[in-house]
Simulated assay, not measured.
Amino acid sequence: MKKNLIKDLSARIGNVSIADAIAQLCELFPGKVVFSTSLGQEDQVITEIIAKNNLPVQIFTLDTGRLFYETYDLLSRTESRYKVKIKPYYPNTSSVENLVADIGINGFYESPENRKSCCYVRKVEPLKRALAGNSIWITGLRSEQSANRSSMSKLEWDEGNQIMKFNPLLDWSMEEMLQYINENKIPYNPLHDKGFVSIGCAPCTRAIEPGEDPRAGRWWWESSKKECGLHIK
């Protein structure tokens, strides 16, 4: 049933603009379409599309408590520019306290297991709360970003979160995205101009060197799939 629904929806929105596709999803699932933004360049593009077209989508972000100052500043500037409210979801206080008591304030550097535990407490669990009760989850994922994302579809079923996920920018190149940002004068994080391609928590993100993989700046001290658990099928 899920496969048939996704197939039908994919055919319905496959040849329309992103704005029209989101509008149709909002009509089909009123009040149950949400967009998660990390304030990255891709997400800023989608926020601009939602705001410009006055689409009834709830925009939310995950505030891990360890973000860059520049990210918080961009959040404020984005709300002011587009006259939208971006709802923050925070990690559970007791879960953070228990995590830090268990592995230490920067224990995520010590092992992939510790890092994944931190990501779960600060990102995965709050995401599940944000998605609960909704039908469509819009993301800013692009297939170029990592090997794991290259196999994704624009509209797919997310088993872990039991929700349909819409990835409207999946086939956009970096060049197309930057051109759209420049043409529409979309505000973005100044860290991008300093070599930070993928921006997450401050302790876990660094700038990358020319020619490095876009995800190389995330959790650079470990060998992994460079994912935090939000977008694993």
Rank of each mutant, 00 (worst) to 15 (best):
T93M: 10
Y180K: 07
W157L: 10
K185D: 11
T139D: 10
E209L: 13
K194I: 04
S38H: 06
K154F: 06
R218S: 02
L170E: 05
L5D: 11
W221D: 12
N189M: 12
R12N: 05
K3D: 14
N167E: 07
S111G: 04
L169P: 02
W220I: 05
I138V: 13
S150N: 11
K185Q: 13
R115P: 01
A21Y: 08
S80I: 08
K2A: 01
N4K: 12
A147V: 11
F68Y: 12
L9T: 05
E42V: 03
S143M: 06
A202T: 06
T37K: 11
L28H: 00
A216Y: 01
G200A: 09
L191H: 09
W172Q: 04
R215V: 08
G229K: 02
T37R: 09
K185R: 10
W219D: 03
D213Y: 03
V96T: 09
P112Y: 02
R206D: 07
L74H: 10
K87N: 09
A132R: 14
E48P: 00
S223N: 13
W157S: 05
M177K: 08
S76W: 01
Q24L: 14
P187V: 13
Y89F: 15
K123I: 08
E48M: 07
N15V: 01
N189I: 12
L127G: 04
K123Y: 09
L170W: 03
F35C: 12
T205N: 04
F108K: 01
L99E: 05
Y120R: 13
F35N: 05
I232D: 02
P203G: 07
N54P: 00
I163C: 07
A19H: 07
T71H: 09
S143N: 10
S224N: 08
W157A: 04
S173G: 13
V100D: 04
N4Q: 14
S224K: 02
N182S: 13
K32R: 15
V84C: 12
F68E: 11
I103G: 04
Y72H: 15
I50T: 08
M174A: 13
C119K: 01
S117W: 02
D193L: 15
A21I: 07
R12Q: 14
S38F: 06
Q179M: 05
A202Y: 03
N54S: 14
L131V: 14
A101H: 06
Q145W: 04
N134G: 09
Y120F: 14
G195P: 05
I50W: 05
K226V: 01
K116N: 12
L28K: 07
S80L: 15
R129Y: 06
I136D: 07
E110D: 15
I18Q: 05
